[in-house]
Computed example of a mutant assay.
Amino acid sequence: MIRVLIADDEALVRTGLRMILEAAGDLEVAGEAADGAEAVAAVRRLRPDVVLMDVRMPRMNGVAALKAINREPDPPKVVMLTTFDLDEYVYGALRARAAGFLLKGSGPRELVGAVRAVADGTAILAPAVTRRLVDAFAERDPAAARAARDRLARLTARERDVVGGVARGLANAGIARELAMTETTVKAHVSRSLAKLGLANRVQIALLVRDAEQGERGGG
């Protein structure tokens, strides 16, 4: 059973999320929080596996709560919930090592799938989310592009193929089909690539690849 904490300042949103999660059968709502401070306290008290965290909340926003939670021993995976205002909150969550992002308008299947994925250690983000985050936040200066290309050079050719698929928003199954691999092999390549690059999740891989590509297109 995957234990989930829901953190959102709107009671109706929390109720809707609870209904969706508990209908899945293998997910249990361990608790709820109405702001970031409550979420941090609930994580310490309840030790959930996954936190669904609203980005914008009173008293302590979701990014500040994420940072505090990640300082805890053996922290849960945190998925940020957003209406997709591309602002400093979302940028901060990227840099604070969020396990993933989910649109508040996502359907039940996507929500449940995201919780299961991050609990399993694989943050599978919707392709639209990945692409829009990357387009908004990728660095565009030549120095960043060169640094990104140098980091990607640490990977084997096959690992670069896999991270290229990640950067395009493909899930492991899509990468496996494209490269004629098993999903298990793709997952292993992603894990090794994250370790070699010193990154936390697939969005950060996508950002790094886009940094490198921006430099190539710009001649840097």
Score class of each variant (00 low, 15 high):
R177A: 12
T156Q: 10
D150P: 05
R151D: 13
G165K: 05
L170P: 01
R177S: 13
R151T: 12
A157P: 05
L155F: 06
A167N: 13
T182Y: 05
G165R: 03
A144P: 10
L179K: 08
V166H: 09
L170D: 07
P142A: 11
G164L: 00
R177L: 12
E159C: 02
V166L: 03
P142G: 11
E178K: 10
R154A: 13
L152Q: 13
L152H: 12
A153F: 02
A148E: 12
A144Q: 08
R146Y: 10
V163T: 12
D150F: 07
A167R: 10
V163C: 06
A147Q: 13
V162S: 09
A147P: 03
L170G: 00
D161N: 03
A171M: 04
R160Q: 14
R168D: 14
I175L: 09
E178W: 01
L152W: 11
D150Y: 06
T182M: 10
D161A: 07
A173W: 12
E159H: 05
R146A: 13
R158A: 09
L179V: 07
G165H: 04
L152C: 09
A180W: 00
T156H: 08
V166A: 06
A144C: 08
V162N: 08
R149W: 10
A167Y: 14
R151M: 15
G174E: 12
A167T: 11
L152N: 11
A144G: 06
L179T: 05
G165P: 07
A145G: 07
R151E: 14
A171V: 14
E178G: 05
R177N: 10
R177H: 06
L155N: 02
A153L: 04
D161C: 01
L152M: 14
R160M: 15
A144R: 12
A176L: 07
G164M: 01
R168N: 07
A157D: 14
A144I: 09
R151K: 15
R154M: 09
R168V: 00
A148W: 10
R146K: 13
A143S: 01
R146V: 15
R151Q: 15
G169F: 07
E159V: 02
T156S: 15
G169V: 02
G169Y: 05
R158Y: 00
A167F: 13
T182G: 15
G165Q: 08
I175H: 03
V166R: 06
E178T: 06
M181F: 07
P142H: 02
V163A: 04
D150E: 15
I175Q: 06
R160H: 13
L179I: 08
G169Q: 04
R158D: 09
T156A: 15
G174C: 05
A167S: 14
A143E: 15
L179H: 07
R146E: 12
A145F: 06
A148Y: 09
A173N: 02
R158C: 00
A144E: 13
N172A: 13
N172I: 00
E159M: 03
R168Q: 13
A173T: 11
E159N: 07
L155C: 02
A171C: 10
L179N: 05
D161F: 01
A167P: 08
A157I: 04
L155G: 01
R146P: 06
L155P: 02
R160W: 10
G164P: 02
